[in-house]
């Protein structure tokens, strides 16, 4: 990162109480405090949120796209991992 640039932060916004924080985007800020305020100004100006999380992007570790085959494809033929083989009583409506 160039020395004269502020670090990048990832922003997570909770749109209302009870829901999860969802990734909203990223922005630059000098520190966490400024990142939260910038997020407030950039991502919640149209009533999008009631809570903000920020984390410096460098602390997010991501899986590599190159690993996708080994990571995800083996799950393709493991249908038994879905709990769809149970007989449920009729009274149970919301499973």
């Amino acid at each position: 990162m160039p020395e004269n640039q502020w670090p990048l932060w990832e922003v997570f916004i909770r749109s209302k109480q009870g829901l999860d924080h969802k990734h909203a985007g990223s922005l630059h800020a000098a520190d966490a405090q400024m990142a939260i305020e910038n997020a407030r100004d950039v991502y919640t100006r149209r009533m999008e949120g009631v809570s903000i999380w920020v984390v410096e992007s460098k602390y997010i570790h991501a899986s590599s796209p190159d690993d996708a085959t080994a990571f995800y494809e083996p799950a393709n033929d493991k249908v038994y991992r879905h709990p769809t083989f149970y007989d449920l009583p009729d009274e149970l409506k919301h499973m």
Binding site: E37, N38, D41
Partner: peptide, 11 residues
């Protein structure tokens, strides 16, 4: 000076 602060001050 930076996009985020441009927006903050415009707000």
């Amino acid at each position: 000076p930076i996009l985020e602060q441009d927006i903050a001050l415009s707000n």
